[in-house]
Structures are given as structure tokens and as C-alpha cells.
């Protein structure tokens, strides 16, 4: 059985044990976040949980590191534009 998660509405399949970042990279997606000020593209950089460049929103929770979060069947993964918690702005 092929497992998959939703990435901004498209279906991304993965092998068991893969992180979201690895699955996205394998599917040909290299970036999934834009920077806060200049809207530049970001994806995996360090790949080991240190740099916080590969942030995305997983099941509604922003600022998740794609390189650390293991992919699960049926996950709702979304790109993160700018800050992940824009709603907190005052």
C-alpha cells in the first residue's frame, strides 16, 4: 500500500520512515517556504534540524521542520509564507 500526504492539495507519496522533507525532495519539490521580508524560496538547508530553514505547516501547526517530522499517511502539509503565525500580529 502506498502512503501519501497532501502538500498544498497535491498528493505526495513517501516510503515509511521518510521525513516530509525527504519525501518532498524525492517528489521533485525543492522549496516550500518563503522568507519573511523578501519572499525568497527556502527548502532543506542543513537537513538535520539546526537551521530552521525548512519550516512548513503540518496539520495546521506552523514552524514544523520538514527535515525532522516523519511523514504520516493523510497528513495535511502546507507551505509557509512569511511568518507561520501571522495571526499573532498586533
Amino acid at each position: 500500500m502506498t502512503e501519501s500526504f497532501s502538500f498544498d492539495g497535491t498528493v505526495v507519496t513517501f516510503r515509511s520512515g521518510q521525513t516530509i522533507g525527504a519525501a518532498l525532495l524525492a517528489s521533485g519539490t525543492r522549496s516550500w517556504r518563503t522568507t519573511r521580508r523578501k519572499g525568497r524560496l527556502r527548502g532543506l538547508f542543513c537537513g538535520i534540524g539546526v537551521c530552521f530553514d525548512c519550516l512548513l505547516t503540518v496539520d495546521g501547526v506552523p514552524d514544523q521542520r520538514a527535515c525532522l517530522v516523519e511523514a504520516r499517511d493523510g497528513m495535511q502539509v502546507r507551505t509557509q509564507q512569511g511568518v507561520g503565525r501571522a495571526g499573532l500580529a498586533i
Binding site: 530552521f52 519550516l55 514552524d63 511568518v83 503565525r85 499573532l88 500580529a89 498586533i90
Partner: peptide, 9 residues
């Protein structure tokens, strides 16, 4: 913390 929008003045 992770970068946030302006929320603490």
C-alpha cells in the same frame, strides 16, 4: 523563539 510577527512591543 521561532520568528514571529510583531507581537511584543
Amino acid at each position: 523563539t521561532a520568528p514571529l510577527p510583531r507581537m511584543v512591543r
